[in-house]
């Protein structure tokens, strides 16, 4: 069955620039049938941290998980289950950087019952986010549904 592909707007504000800092605006695609708004501190998780054997690493405040997927890493769980596990750990939303995992998008497209937003990012959108993580630049992220322009192609 066909499901609308909804795009996500990801606004990233460095904590050190709050509240006046101008947010960096990136884009992604919602999957998992849970398009919606989410907000929290960006927190990276290693792909292996979302496995059955992973222990419970609780964060204090609201956070949004970002995982850079790697095709070389042993897939301990299907991606939908990894997403659920991240949400069960308290994430307000999950962002998957799928630049290095071509099959990820297909695996997540058919899922329908994720309780909170899950977003796929690629290309420069992914690079910008992961470069922040790599520099350990603490940032707040707001995810929203991208409202497409009303009549883009019609007469």
């Amino acid at each position: 069955s066909e499901r609308p592909v909804l795009r996500a707007i990801i606004k990233v504000t460095l904590l050190k620039h709050e509240p006046t800092g101008k947010p960096l605006t990136l884009e992604g695609v919602f999957v998992g049938g849970s398009a919606g708004k989410a907000e929290g501190k960006l927190m990276q998780y290693h792909p292996l941290s979302l496995c059955n054997t992973s222990e419970d690493e609780r964060q204090e405040s609201d956070f949004i998980t970002i995982v850079k997927l790697e095709h070389r890493v042993h897939h301990c769980l299907p991606l939908p289950d990894k997403a659920r596990m991240a949400l069960d750990k308290g994430a307000q939303a999950v962002i998957f950087d799928i630049r290095n995992d071509a099959s990820a998008a297909a695996e997540l497209q058919e899922v329908d019952s994720l309780p909170r937003p899950v977003v796929l990012v690629e290309d420069n959108n992914a690079k910008e986010l992961m470069d922040l993580v790599n520099k350990n630049e603490e940032a707040k992220v707001v995810i929203e549904i991208k409202m497409e322009p009303k009549w883009p192609h019609y007469d």
């Binding site: 290693h46 792909p47 690493e57 790697e70 070389r72 993580v133 350990n136």
Partner: peptide, 22 residues
């Protein structure tokens, strides 16, 4: 971005959190 993805035989994989990074 992720550091070690797999270890040599007989080494332990530890996921270390450093601020927002893991």
């Amino acid at each position: 971005y992720n550091g070690c993805l797999s270890c040599k035989p007989r080494f332990f994989m530890h996921l270390e959190r450093i601020g927002m990074k893991q």
